[in-house]
Simulated assay, not measured.
Amino acid sequence: MDVSLRPVHDSDLPVFFRQMNDPEALHMAAFTPEDPADREAFEAHWARIRASEQVVVRTVLGDGDVLGSAAVYGEPGEREVTYWIDRAYWGKGIATAALRALLAEVDERPLFARVAADNAASLRVLRTCGFEMSARATGYAPARGAEIEELVLTLGP
Rank of each mutant, 00 (worst) to 15 (best):
residue 51 A to S: 08
residue 51 A to C: 06
residue 52 S to P: 05
residue 52 S to I: 10
residue 52 S to A: 13
residue 53 E to L: 07
residue 53 E to A: 15
residue 54 Q to E: 15
residue 54 Q to Y: 10
residue 54 Q to W: 15
residue 55 V to I: 13
residue 55 V to M: 09
residue 55 V to P: 00
residue 55 V to Y: 11
residue 56 V to D: 12
residue 56 V to P: 07
residue 56 V to K: 07
residue 57 V to G: 07
residue 57 V to T: 11
residue 57 V to D: 08
residue 57 V to A: 11
residue 58 R to L: 05
residue 58 R to D: 00
residue 58 R to T: 09
residue 58 R to K: 14
residue 58 R to A: 03
residue 59 T to D: 05
residue 59 T to M: 03
residue 60 V to M: 05
residue 60 V to Y: 09
residue 60 V to C: 09
residue 60 V to A: 04
residue 61 L to P: 03
residue 61 L to M: 03
residue 62 G to Q: 12
residue 62 G to E: 11
residue 62 G to V: 13
residue 63 D to T: 10
residue 63 D to F: 00
residue 63 D to R: 07
residue 63 D to M: 02
residue 64 G to K: 12
residue 64 G to M: 06
residue 64 G to E: 12
residue 65 D to K: 13
residue 65 D to F: 02
residue 66 V to K: 03
residue 67 L to N: 03
residue 67 L to E: 05
residue 67 L to M: 08
residue 68 G to K: 05
residue 68 G to M: 02
residue 69 S to E: 13
residue 69 S to H: 10
residue 69 S to A: 15
residue 70 A to N: 02
residue 71 A to S: 09
residue 71 A to Y: 15
residue 71 A to F: 15
residue 73 Y to C: 01
residue 73 Y to H: 12
residue 73 Y to Q: 04
residue 73 Y to S: 11
residue 74 G to E: 02
residue 74 G to K: 07
residue 74 G to W: 14
residue 75 E to L: 05
residue 75 E to H: 03
residue 76 P to T: 13
residue 76 P to A: 13
residue 76 P to I: 15
residue 76 P to C: 08
residue 77 G to M: 00
residue 77 G to F: 00
residue 77 G to D: 08
residue 77 G to V: 05
residue 78 E to R: 11
residue 78 E to N: 11
residue 78 E to F: 14
residue 78 E to K: 08
residue 79 R to G: 01
residue 79 R to T: 02
residue 79 R to H: 09
residue 80 E to G: 10
residue 80 E to P: 12
residue 80 E to M: 13
residue 81 V to W: 02
residue 81 V to P: 04
residue 81 V to Q: 05
residue 82 T to V: 09
residue 82 T to K: 06
residue 82 T to C: 06
residue 83 Y to K: 00
residue 83 Y to A: 00
residue 83 Y to G: 00
residue 83 Y to T: 00
residue 84 W to F: 12
residue 84 W to G: 08
residue 84 W to K: 02
residue 85 I to N: 01
residue 85 I to T: 01
residue 85 I to L: 00
residue 85 I to H: 06
residue 85 I to C: 02
residue 86 D to P: 01
residue 86 D to R: 10
residue 86 D to L: 04
residue 86 D to H: 13
residue 87 R to C: 03
residue 87 R to G: 03
residue 88 A to M: 05
residue 88 A to D: 07
residue 88 A to L: 06
residue 88 A to F: 03
residue 88 A to R: 15
residue 88 A to N: 09
residue 88 A to H: 05
residue 88 A to K: 14
residue 88 A to G: 04
residue 89 Y to L: 02
residue 89 Y to W: 15
residue 89 Y to R: 12
residue 89 Y to Q: 08
residue 89 Y to F: 08
residue 90 W to R: 05
residue 90 W to A: 08
residue 90 W to N: 06
residue 90 W to I: 00
residue 90 W to E: 04
residue 91 G to I: 01
residue 92 K to N: 04
residue 92 K to P: 02
